[in-house]
């Protein structure tokens, strides 16, 4: 450290190393990222947004929604569930005995108490959860052993964690989710709820408009500022606009007037509705709940 050159070199090397690590390496690793395949499906993820939603992303950026909202869901772990859906030709009592005999298998030994215990008072109704816990190996071993016997089981993977419990998503966010975002706005403060899946939670554009126009009209204690300037209050013409907000009480405009979203509000809502990271991926697996079941 006796000459300027020494300091320059030290600083150059230190910063250069981190530049290679955090700028160059991620560019090489992820810069050429492409769509990935959705698990158990032939579809790709993510899909390019519609033009309107792409414009909406810029509206989201311009008004700085990311100052209060994150767009990333965390997951702390995963739970596995093996459910018996059909006994085939077996009888319930025989099946119980079979399960007991299975418990000597080393893969299952650790969870034998809970599996056998759950069958204690069972008298044959279906579906019946045989295993529920965080050990994926036990779940798959159990399913494997039951397959040859002719009963039908279903294994589900469920992401866990406070964010998932609050209904903010069905799995954690992963790098692939943001492939088409420019800028990517992950956000760092949750002064408002996470929006990574707002398109799943609130899929109605009218609701989104109303919430943006007057957050307190949908959520009485809301601390979100209103974005009234994205809307136009105008005299009802010959026919009321189909887009007019359905506002009640103190939020409704004066008689003879209607509130209609400006293009920016429509784009923003289209973007919000496009936010749904609800498909299973290799790096974030889960079993989607299908309503048809």
């Amino acid at each position: 450290m006796r000459t300027g050159i020494c300091i320059f070199m030290a600083a150059f090397i230190a910063l250069g190393a981190s530049w290679c690590g955090f700028v160059l390496a991620p560019m090489l690793q992820l810069g050429g990222a492409k769509q990935t395949v959705i698990l158990q499906s032939a579809d790709n993820w993510p899909q390019q947004r519609t033009g309107e939603a792409t414009l909406g992303l810029q509206v989201y950026r311009a008004y700085g929604c990311a100052a209060c909202h994150t767009e990333q869901v965390r997951q702390t772990g995963a739970a596995f569930e093996v459910t018996l859906t059909s006994l085939g030709t077996q009888k319930a009592a025989d099946f119980k005995d079979f399960i007991k005999s299975l418990m000597v298998v080393p893969d299952l030994a650790t969870s034998s108490n809970s599996i056998v215990g759950s069958l204690d008072k069972w008298n044959g109704e279906l579906p019946k959860t045989l295993y529920s816990g965080d050990d994926g190996d036990v779940a798959s071993a159990l399913a494997d052993h039951l397959k040859p016997v002719g009963v039908k089981t279903e294994t589900r993977i469920i992401a866990t964690g406070p964010d998932i419990a609050r209904g903010w998503g069905s799995r954690q966010s992963v790098a692939a989710d943001y492939l088409y975002d420019a800028p990517v706005q992950l956000g760092s403060l949750r002064a408002g709820p996470d929006l990574a899946n707002i398109g799943v939670r609130a899929p109605d554009a009218n609701w989104q408009w109303q919430h943006l126009y007057a957050p307190k009209s949908t959520t009485p204690n809301s601390t979100m500022p209103s974005f009234k300037f994205l809307f136009e209050v105008r005299a009802v013409g010959a026919a009321p606009s189909p887009d007019a907000l359905k506002l009640a009480g103190a939020f409704a405009p004066a008689a003879g007037f209607e509130v209609v979203p400006k293009p920016e509000a429509k784009e923003l809502a289209a973007y919000l509705l496009s936010l749904k990271a609800n498909v299973p991926l290799y790096e974030a697996p889960f079993t989607p709940v299908t309503l048809a079941k």
């Binding site: 992820l30 810069g31 790098a175 692939a176 800028p183 990517v184």
Partner: peptide, 20 residues
């Protein structure tokens, strides 16, 4: 040059450079 130009890198690389 990376984040404020016409051609930004794809996806989360932006956030990584931003954090750096």
């Amino acid at each position: 040059l990376f984040l404020n130009s016409n051609k930004v890198p794809r996806g989360v690389v932006q956030s990584i450079i931003g954090w750096w």
